[in-house]
Simulated assay, not measured.
Amino acid sequence: MVDVQTTSEGDPSASPQLKQRFKTQSKSESNSDEHLPLAQIRLKSHEWFGEFITKHEIPRKAFHSSIGFITLYLYTTGMDYRNVKWPLIVAFAILLPLDLIRLRWNAINKLYCRCVGALMRKSEIHTYNGVLWYLLGLIFAFSFFPKDVALISLFLLSWCDTAASTFGCKFGHLTPKLARNKSLAGSIAAFVVGFLVCLLFYGVFVPHYAYVNSPGELSWSAETSRLSLTQFSLLGGVVAALSEGIDLFNWDDNFTIPVLSAIFMNAVIRFAKAT
């Protein structure tokens, strides 16, 4: 007769090897998100990068910021800014149907999230990707505003938004909250970066690469404005802080920042125009 021990529930106790097998199998099943609801998907790329990098969205912010540097390089090559909107429109026309498809079919959405999850927030798993709003905002700026205004709006989106998010997350609890997910710390960071963007773009890049601009293509210059470069850059910082801090109908700030900054910068330039 085989001596079988029982647990308090009356079930046979397994051998240590069998227990370990069941434990490993259970852990493997719990780590699998294949059959989990969409909202519970764990983005594998977030696990690869580790908690610190994931918490601070470093891959997403690096990609976000790189757009500004790429655009600045293209500016120095003399690329016609009027042609910038066309690849943006094409990208939007491709990504919008893709988002519609993935939001309709969970299997495709899971595959999509695993491929580009490093650049996504978890909130974007079951809603439209922020890239769509990013593209829409830039399409608006490059379609309706002068060259320098469109470029500044892109730089503010690329760098001020990243700075505001980084400093807001780090120090926002120490300062007053201005709006939904907006803090004074983030707005101060946006102001500083916006000031530096205007100061360096108009003070360094525009004169150094003057040959890439056609006559009258830039809407602001020290010769045609009542404001000095420093004064204008300070207002540029204010524009950056306002554009980043305003919560407009809960719209995505990837859309509102370039739209508002383009409108505000254009208004500042017109107001400061020498008569």
Rank of each mutant, 00 (worst) to 15 (best):
G78R: 15
F22C: 04
F69M: 15
L151M: 14
G168L: 06
N213D: 05
Q20V: 05
C160F: 03
L151D: 03
I263F: 12
Y112I: 02
K85V: 15
A39C: 05
G194S: 04
L36I: 07
Y112P: 00
V131C: 10
S261I: 04
D99W: 04
A39Q: 11
W48V: 09
A274D: 06
P37E: 08
K61A: 04
Q231S: 14
F264A: 10
W251A: 14
S30C: 06
L184N: 08
F144S: 04
V206L: 06
A210E: 13
L156Q: 00
L157N: 00
R42W: 03
F69C: 15
H126K: 08
G186E: 09
K122M: 11
I108A: 08
A185T: 02
A164H: 09
M79E: 05
S158R: 03
E244A: 07
F167Y: 13
L36M: 11
F171R: 10
G10F: 08
N31K: 13
F140M: 08
P215V: 03
K44V: 15
T6S: 04
L136K: 00
R180M: 03
A93D: 09
K61P: 00
T71Y: 07
V259I: 08
E47R: 09
N106R: 11
W251E: 07
K122Y: 15
W159C: 15
K273S: 10
F232Q: 01
T224D: 10
I67C: 08
P97C: 07
E217A: 01
L199F: 14
T77H: 07
S233V: 08
G168F: 06
D99P: 08
K85L: 10
L132N: 05
T24W: 07
N83G: 11
L260H: 04
A14P: 00
S45A: 15
P37Q: 08
S45N: 12
T6P: 01
V84T: 13
D253N: 09
L98E: 08
R82G: 06
M79I: 15
N254L: 06
F145E: 00
R270G: 11
L260I: 14
V84P: 09
I89S: 10
L119Y: 14
C115Y: 07
I246A: 11
A164M: 05
C160Q: 07
I269K: 11
Q231H: 05
F195I: 06
K110L: 03
N266V: 02
D252W: 01
P207N: 14
W133L: 03
L96M: 13
S28R: 14
Q17G: 02
W48L: 09
